[in-house]
Design a protein around this nucleic acid. Structure first.
Length: 698
DNA sequence: TTTTGAAGTCTCTCC
DNA sequence: GACTTCAAAA
């Protein structure tokens, strides 16, 4: 493993061009102060666009320059995208040594440490990671065993149960208080819920399964419960740097305390105005309490924004000034001017889509690469209409966030086969594949699993089970496949590693494709997904690595790219606001700025949630460098019950004062026939300039 | 006991 | 508009 502790030995200089002076030359005094800070806790409050990542990356370079071994630096972030960005920038700045810096999301680092040290804490090394869907399915199995499956009274559903469980773990709130706060109408079930959670925990243990929360919980526990383990784990690193600290929760704070038990070289960076992950148990108080948690903390504040024009910043500052609680100051910029951001009123969704597409093409023709533009929205599904239009017009795009490739049912199906061969006790996957087989339903599946449990999940157990007559056929073909997957008999030469996983998938598909075609109306796209899965699998050394990587670092949707080659293509980015955090674009379009959509109607009841929505919109607006357009359709069809359409209102966050910092744009009706024909392939934008000229009135 | 068809239920954000 | 759950039929 490459996580073995290494000696702290002086290294030859690897930075001929980046001595400390050039390293600091590009930084402002506040940034430089943070970068060169010594060996004590450091809290950097850094507003949007103030060079937060830059500061962090330079600090890494500075530490390496000072002789700290790169592999003894740990960079923790919250999202995969941020982790990848941070590490690649470090490498660019520092050179090859930068690639040796350790880092990743809290979950992926936790995973690495568990594989390495879990054995010493009684966790078998070959555990399987469950994603959220799997965890919910396991919760459902436990729920069913308790007999709520068909009870008349309403008992919380598996999603709610899992949410409560996860919240309980991450916020450390006692269960009764949590129920009282989140779901008071379920308070009467407190006892059953407690029992259910105990069963869920037990099932995880028996089945050798680990959920996302466990990756953090076990990490924290190893640090707290065993001084010996704590010393070994904390001893791996001399410096810890944490990005987006406002999105951490109490559990993660515990981990940091444990990791810094032998030293106090901890740097955290964040912005309370961008705290948008409370649904994961994060609270921006965490960043404010940091000095209390780590006495002697030094505070550095970054307030100069280098990203946005003054006009965009005025809008963002005005919007966030309405926040109930606020700790960071307004940002300022040396960039002056800039066009006032647009507030675009569209008649309906179709017109909103047309506006965005036309404007994107217009800017593209003006020389802005597609990749420099982004369309942002509150939730993944809100871009559906836009995606269709972009596909029709052959404009390449890439979607971030929203439904993931491996959350698709057919992908999970195939993975389930791999997972039972990887971990024969994986009950969730067993249930899944058994239910796929013709002639096997819920009760047969449960009975078969019970028999296997009696045989201690012996890998051969399934073959020797006696299936009910109508499931004979299914049982036999499944048993044959599983034997094949377990590699009974010789592994063909040259089929170690990735080729092995790919051939496993081929074997699975020999059985599964027929089932898939039966199950879905239009199987083509789904079959293509499976091709993709096999391609991806080829780059992983083993089945176990492949499965773990999929859970922690899943590839995004397969239908990302509409036209254009997959690799270096210039593509418009569509993203949820959450997934866009930390990034910046020349031009930003925020769509669906409709009250009830953004803020989400689920959030308007609760003041705290509403405040979080406001911060979320702040995050969206501060992504823009030069141009910003907020779009909202006035009529929304078919969303409210009882009416064909409803007249919706502009988001409440864009009040009169905020609107005063914007300019209103009205999209004109297009000509009589409502443009049903997509542009012909090849040259989509040929006549657009003419159309565009007449479309906007200021 | 499984399958199939119909009614019902919410819609998010991420690891 | 997709997916789950429920009820009746095979």
């Amino acid at each position: 493993m490459d996580d073995e502790p290494r000696l702290y030995r002086p290294r030859p200089r690897e930075l001929p061009t980046n001595d400390e002076r050039t390293l600091l030359a590009s930084l402002n005094p506040d940034q430089a102060r943070a970068v060169t800070f010594g060996d004590a806790p450091l809290l950097v409050i850094a507003g949007a666009g103030t060079g937060k990542t830059r500061t962090l990356v330079h600090r890494v370079a500075f530490l390496i320059e000072r002789g700290v071994a790169p592999e003894r630096i740990l960079l923790l972030t919250f999202t995969r995208r941020a982790a990848a960005e941070m590490l690649s920038r470090a490498e660019r700045l520092v050179g090859p040594a930068g690639a040796r810096v350790h880092g990743g999301t809290f979950h992926s680092v936790g995973h690495r440490l568990l594989r390495q040290f879990g054995g010493a804490a009684g966790l078998p090394a070959d555990f399987t990671i469950m994603d959220q869907g799997d965890a919910q399915d396991l919760m459902q199995l436990a729920r069913g065993a308790q007999g709520h499956a068909k009870s008349a009274k309403r008992f919380p559903k598996k999603e709610t149960l899992h949410y409560l469980y996860s919240r309980h773990v991450n916020t450390e709130l006692p269960l009764d208080e949590l129920l009282h706060r989140e779901v008071p109408h379920f308070l009467e079930y407190e006892e059953q819920i407690t029992a259910l959670f105990a069963d869920y925990t037990l099932r995880k243990q028996e089945r050798n399964l680990v959920d996302y929360d466990d990756l953090l919980l076990f990490w924290a526990t190893m640090l707290e419960a065993s001084p010996d383990l704590a010393a070994r784990i904390a001893g791996l690193y001399d410096h810890l740097l944490v990005d987006e600290y406002q999105d951490t929760n109490l559990l993660q704070a515990r981990i940091l305390r444990g990791m810094c038990s032998t030293h106090r070289r901890l740097t955290v960076v964040g912005d309370d105005a961008q705290s948008i992950y409370s649904f994961r148990g994060a609270h921006f108080r965490n960043i404010l309490d940091f000095p209390k948690q780590f006495p002697g903390t030094t505070l550095v504040t970054l307030a100069q924004n280098y990203r946005s024009t003054a006009a965009i910043l005025t809008l963002s500052n005005t919007l966030i000034s309405r926040a109930e609680e606020r700790f960071t100051k307004d940002l300022w910029t040396a960039r002056d001017g800039g066009e006032k951001p647009w507030l675009v009123t569209a008649k309906d969704e179709a017109q909103q889509t047309r506006f965005v597409v036309d404007r994107v093409l217009q800017m593209h023709e003006g020389g802005v690469p597609l990749r420099e533009m982004v369309v942002l929205f509150r939730a993944g599904y809100m871009s559906a209409d836009l995606e269709i239009e972009l596909t029709n017009r052959k404009i390449p795009f890439e979607k971030w966030g929203g439904l993931k490739f491996l959350e698709a049912a057919h992908v999970k199906d195939v993975l389930a086969f791999l997972r039972v061969s990887d971990n024969p006790r994986d009950e969730v996957s067993w249930y899944r594949i058994l239910m796929l087989m013709p002639g096997i339903g819920d009760s047969t599946a449960r009975a078969l699993m019970a028999s296997m449990q009696e045989r201690a999940w012996d890998p051969d157990a399934f073959t020797h089970l006696i299936a009910p007559p109508r499931a004979r056929e299914a049982h036999r073909s499944l048993a044959t496949l599983l034997r094949q997957l377990r590699g009974v008999g010789a592994v063909p030469a040259g089929e170690e590693g990735g080729a092995r996983v790919a051939s496993d998938i081929a074997a699975i598909r020999a059985l599964y494709d027929a089932i898939l075609k039966e199950k879905y109306d239009r199987p083509e796209a789904r079959l293509a997904d499976l091709d993709q899965l096999r391609t991806i699998s080829a780059s992983y050394p083993s089945r176990t690595t492949f499965l773990a990587a999929l859970a922690l670092d899943p590839p995004s949707s397969t239908q990302d790219l509409a036209g254009g080659s997959e690799s270096e293509s210039d593509a418009l980015v569509l993203s949820t606001v959450h997934s866009a955090k930390g990034k910046e674009w020349k031009a930003v379009f925020l769509i669906w700025a409709v009250d009830g959509w953004f803020p989400s109607s689920r959030a308007v009841e609760d003041p705290d949630e509403l405040e979080e929505e406001r911060r979320l919109m702040y995050v969206a607006l501060t992504r823009a460098k030069d141009e910003l357009a907020i779009v909202y359709p006035m009529q929304v069809y078919g969303t409210r019950r009882g009416a064909d359409y409803s007249i919706d209102q502009l988001s409440r966050f864009l009040d009169r004062g905020v609107r005063a910092t914007m300019q209103r744009i009205v999209v004109e009706e297009p000509g009589e026939p409502p443009a049903p024909t997509p542009a012909p392939a090849g040259q989509p934008a040929i006549d657009l300039r003419a159309i565009m000229r007449g479309r906007f009135t200021k």
